[in-house]
């Protein structure tokens, strides 16, 4: 009897030990993964405040300040370059692309998910195939098109062209969301006194909100980081986005403005990361929203 009790006690202790080491290993792995992901940003944040001599002397510790930090390079970025113009352009293009993308892909996805029978499926696949042609093949013919439309050297060129990339993907994404909403819901709304459009905007669109958030995030980030089209269509400083402006104007010949480059990256990335983090919560609550029946 005493033997048995001691054995169970030992089992309990070893189970606890396993649990603790398991947790410890989990957190260690999570922490190192987090550090790995954050490391470029940490280094960028340190670098953006460094003096030139501090940065270029090999003997110095690259991961810490060997001289007092300075705001000089951030000031240079904000006031002596066109960085703020690039930011403004990126935001304008980003929002416009998001609007165009939603305006077209929402109704298109609904129609393909719900109304199109045989043809809907085929058209959906067709649209997706078109998307698979890479921009590196398309930018030359498209630059002709843009020139013929006299849209070069204007933000409109990007606002018109980016949706060709964002709409197919967004449409497919939203189609999945629409298909996951039971038909009953909108039919119920139609019986309850609404037209099809009224029923869909009042009952289905709120339910695909997580999908809409995903589309907004996707379309905006694509507009912010797209490089090839932005570079080919727009050469003037006044119409560059961050993606093209920063590498073309902060690298002059063989002179790299390292600290300002890093600052540009950090100043753009951190607000976007925070905004996404905010959306992430919405995203998850959206997914766990109650279904039709329990």
């Amino acid at each position: 009897m005493a033997q048995a009790v001691r054995t169970i006690e030992m089992e309990r202790r070893s189970a606890k030990r396993r649990r603790v080491t398991g947790r410890f290993a989990l957190y260690a792995i999570a922490a190192s993964a987090g550090f790995l992901a954050a490391f470029p940003f940490l280094w960028a944040i340190i670098t953006m405040f460094k003096e030139d001599q501090d940065l270029y002397v090999k003997a110095n510790n690259p991961f810490w300040f060997n001289k007092a930090p300075t705001l000089e390079h951030v000031r240079f970025l904000l006031f002596d370059t066109n960085f703020l113009t690039f930011v403004r352009n990126t935001v304008i293009v980003g929002f416009a692309v998001v609007l165009v993308t939603l305006a077209i892909s929402l109704p298109a996805a609904y129609a393909l998910a719900r109304l199109g029978m045989k043809w809907g499926e085929r058209m959906g696949i067709g649209i997706f195939l078109v998307y698979l042609i890479p921009p590196t093949l398309l930018f030359i013919p498209l630059s002709r098109v843009v020139a013929d439309l006299r849209l070069q050297e204007s933000l409109w060129s990007l606002i018109i062209v980016y949706p060709t990339i964002t709409i197919p993907i967004s449409m497919w994404l939203l189609m999945g969301f629409f298909k996951s909403i039971p038909r009953d819901i909108e039919e119920q709304a139609m019986v309850d006194g609404y037209s099809r459009i009224g029923a869909v905007t009042r009952t289905v669109v709120p339910l695909v909100f997580p999908g809409i958030v995903a589309v907004v995030v996707f379309a905006f980030t694509l507009s912010a980081h797209e490089f090839i089209y932005a570079l080919t269509f727009n050469k003037a400083s006044a119409v560059k986005t961050i993606a093209t402006g920063v590498p073309t104007e902060l690298v002059r010949g063989d002179v790299f403005f390292w600290q300002s480059l890093q600052a540009a990256a950090v100043l753009v990335a951190v607000p976007i990361a925070l905004a996404f983090n905010f959306f992430l919560d919405k995203f998850i609550t959206g997914f766990t929203m109650g279904a039709v029946k329990g």
Binding site: D184, I185, Q188, D192, A291, V292
Partner: peptide
């Protein structure tokens, strides 16, 4: 008319 679906089709939001 008024209809009650098998799933009840309540608006979850």
């Amino acid at each position: 008319i008024a209809m009650v679906f098998q799933s009840y089709a309540l608006y979850p939001h």
